[in-house]
């Protein structure tokens, strides 16, 4: 059933920019228009392009914030989140933990 929601009205997670917009909602209580505006400005794209696979596939690859396909060498998982925290200007709990642990 989640696929029905994805097809009808989902942003698309790491396929486009859904993870970034979702993060701003969850961590900063941003309503949808505000979260979309915030992420669009950080990425330098329009609101429509946020949900566009063509734009976002290239942009995610360029920014190295994780892509949906198995691109060799591209940032994955936690690596991508380190870059997302920086890009969005927010703290991400598991990234904070990594930074704390890596300061030997």
């Amino acid at each position: 059933m989640p696929i029905g929601h994805l097809v009808a009205g989902g942003i698309g997670s790491i396929r486009t920019s859904g993870d970034l917009i979702g993060r701003m909602q969850l961590q900063k209580k941003m309503r949808l228009p505000e979260a979309k505006d915030y992420v669009a400005k950080k990425l330098g794209v329009s609101s429509i392009e946020l949900c566009d696979e063509f734009t976002m596939r290239k942009l995610r690859e360029k920014l190295d914030i994780g892509v949906i396909t198995g691109l060799p060498g591209a940032a994955k998982g936690l690596e991508a989140k380190v870059r997302i925290a920086e890009l969005l200007g927010i703290k991400i709990n598991c990234v904070e933990r990594l930074e704390k642990l890596s300061k030997v």
Binding site: G9, G10, A35
Partner: peptide
Amino acid sequence: KVVAVKHGCEVVLSADAG
């Protein structure tokens, strides 16, 4: 059979334990 929102109206999915 299947309908969808207009371009630009897409929303965040947290979708109940998906």
